[in-house]
Amino acid sequence: MSRVDVDVELLDRTPRVATSFATGVATGLGRPGARGELPGRRLVLPGVRQDLPRLAGFCEVTGGLLADTVPATWLHVLTFPLQVRLMSARDFPFPMLGMVHVGNRMRVHRPVRVSEELTLSTWAEDLAPHRKGSTVDLVGEVRVGEELVWEGRSTYLVRGDTPPGAPRGEVSEAMGDADAGGSPDGAGAAARAAGPGRQVALWRLPADLGRSYARVAGDANPIHLSALSAKAFGFPRAIAHGMWTHARVLAAVQPRLPQRYAVSATFVKPILLPSTVVLRTGGQGLGDLAVTDREGSRRHLSMQVDGPL
């Protein structure tokens, strides 16, 4: 995934997400969309010391246990401000507000300790057609010194905007049935399929979960914060952060995760808050995981863990 010819924009501090949101909203109009080009820049932030109290809060909100090695989803959270900065910048082709996080992949090359100082980097690539529009990947890396310890790839969907020349109906490989729009009946087959069969946990998600997660993860997208702010964006109630659900599942299987692994998650249908959901597994071992409603008729998240690498 490396691109040799990219420019590097060296950051000296973590970009403020709120500032990026404001820039994104203020400059969202008139962007070229799928006809445009992704910025070639790579944002790099060296010298990142991890914030222990915030990590403890993250673990608490996502049902994990504070340990010396940090959750993979925590490293995603650290790179998130860089993603937002890149997506809100004027040279990004899409307006940020319409972008929906539909899938996420991570590779953990080795356990990362909370005491380690990190270099984060993020760039955009793979603008691809999707049956509902286009997808773009925000790619992240975490290094300790020169050593690559974590890779992440967040796939965002821009609805109704297909790159020119792309045959409509060609579906981006990983995120086939993603439909974060929340329409109850128009979902793909995966949303209805019960998927992995065995229920292994039941979670009651409180109405303020989005606010709790936003505090520790720094993602204060209004669709997660309150019913009122979510309504403004077409959701009947606030929806859980997809990455919260992802982190909650990883925390649940943490004791069985190998040291080096890859994990891929697809955010199928949003979870309206408050809600009760269940974690299902395909059987022995990790393999396939899914978060569904209690009846198992509506799938919110599909996840696959591969490892040890």
Binding site: L52, L55, A56, L65, L66, A67
Partner: peptide, 15 residues
């Protein structure tokens, strides 16, 4: 360890 619970410390020590 101000942010670490008994559960966190015991689990890490066991691991």
């Amino acid at each position: 360890y101000a942010d670490a619970s008994n559960q966190a410390m015991l689990t890490s020590t066991l691991d």
